[in-house]
């Protein structure tokens, strides 16, 4: 029956690893905003710049 103890303890350790991973992800702020990251990843990085760097458009619309 000793094998039971070993198996149970191993499984406990694995589950504990997942618990730590979960706590880490919460601490890291992964649940703070669940909308932006999945959408951010879908944005293309193609930076088509017609009249690029001289962008001094800080005037207000009025």
């Amino acid at each position: 029956m000793g094998i039971f103890i070993i198996i149970a303890l191993i499984s406990l350790c694995i589950a504990g690893g997942f618990l730590l991973a979960f706590l880490w992800s919460v601490k890291d702020g992964q649940y703070d905003d669940i909308y932006s990251p999945p959408n951010r990843i879908l944005f293309d990085n193609d930076q088509s710049k017609p009249s690029s760097s001289s962008s001094e458009t800080n005037q207000l619309s009025s």
């Binding site: 905003d33 669940i34 932006s36 944005f43 962008s55 458009t57």
Partner: peptide
């Protein structure tokens, strides 16, 4: 909105980075 706001540095090059928290 999310996309534009995170690319806002292309309009004002003094902005180094802009990170959005959409829910808040």
């Amino acid at each position: 909105c999310l996309w534009l706001l995170e690319n806002i540095h292309r309009i004002n090059n003094g902005i180094i980075a802009c990170r959005v928290n959409f829910q808040n």
